[in-house]
Structure formats: structure tokens, C-alpha cells
Write a protein that binds this DNA or RNA. Structure first.
Length: 154
DNA sequence: GCCAACGTTGGC
DNA sequence: GCCAACGTTGGC
């Protein structure tokens, strides 16, 4: 099983939004970057565990864990003209944006802040620190285990 | 709000 | 296919 990291702006969709959603699940819509799409479409497998990261906020941090419950979903927002993520160049028989469904597993206490990760020698190769704009990222087994050792999931 | 990094668009 | 212009992300 591989590990991943998803970014979300908490003002838009926070970990607690996920944890209180019906079935604690949501379709991860709105990703419109091809590299991120390729990871969602080709690499994340059902059952994979994923860090939930809060970006563009006061304290950027990994705040929870979720699990990929379904894969290969055509992002419904690409077909919705009222959505900011509408893509007129996409079609139902050849959807451009493929995503996953995720389910909340646990919040992390404490959350692991970006600041803390930046100063942790075990985490210097993290994509988060080096490919900071990518909104769907791989997390190595070592990085995952290390971060888990710094916190407890509740 | 600023701005660096970097992805995308479109003219040529 | 190049690359300048432009748009977006996201930390600070």
C-alpha cells in the first residue's frame, strides 16, 4: 500500500467537513492540474491511506488521515456549467478529470505543521517541501511512519 | 496583500 | 515547438 497527501483549503473544505460529511466520505473534485490528475487516476489504489493537509491558511499542517474508498471516478464538476470547475472541453464519454472518493479515518493530535516538517531532518525530501504547489503528492513509507511517530490519531 | 514558483495558453 | 504573457498556488 502506498501513501499520499491531499491538500485542501480549510475555508473551502476542511478535515472536519470530511469527518462530518455523509458516511464521512466525499468525491475529491476540482483538481485541474494534470500531474495531480495522473496520480489520482493512475496511482492511488482503493484502500491507500492519505494525509489530509490544510493549505493557504494560518497554520498549514497535516491535520488528519483519510482512505481512498473508490477510484476511477469522473469528476462530476467538470460537466456542471454552474461549477467553477466546469470544463467545456471534457465530455461524458471521454472525461478529462478522473478522481477518487475518500473517507475520513482519523484526525491527528497534534497536527503536524509545515513549520515543524521544514525543520525535521527526516522529512527534507518530502514532496510537500520541494514540490510545494502540487495538490496531490506521494508520501514515502519512511515519511509516513516518521510523521505518524510524531502524533497520535484519534 | 505580496510575490516567487511554476503551470498553461496561444501567437508565431 | 518556442517562449512570452498570463494565471494560479500558497507561504509569509
Amino acid at each position: 500500500m502506498k501513501h499520499w497527501l491531499l491538500k485542501s483549503e480549510p475555508d473551502t473544505f476542511s478535515y472536519s467537513h470530511l469527518a462530518t460529511a455523509p458516511d464521512r466520505r466525499t468525491v475529491w473534485d476540482g483538481v485541474r492540474n494534470y500531474q495531480a490528475r495522473n496520480i489520482l487516476r493512475d496511482e492511488i489504489c482503493q484502500g491507500d491511506l492519505i494525509f489530509f493537509y490544510h493549505s493557504s491558511c494560518k497554520q498549514p499542517a497535516i491535520v488528519g488521515i483519510c482512505r481512498a474508498t473508490r477510484t476511477g471516478i469522473a469528476d462530476p464538476s467538470q460537466f456542471d456549467p454552474a461549477s467553477p470547475y466546469f470544463d467545456p472541453k471534457s465530455s461524458a464519454d471521454n472525461p478529462r478529470w478522473i478522481t477518487i472518493e475518500v473517507e475520513a479515518v482519523n484526525a491527528l493530535h497534534p497536527a503536524i505543521t509545515l513549520k515543524q516538517m521544514r525543520t525535521d531532518s527526516a522529512l527534507q525530501d518530502m514532496a510537500l517541501l520541494n514540490r510545494s504547489r502540487l495538490s496531490v503528492q506521494p508520501v514515502s513509507d519512511q515519511e509516513w511512519q516518521h510523521i505518524m511517530s510524531l502524533t497520535r490519531s484519534v
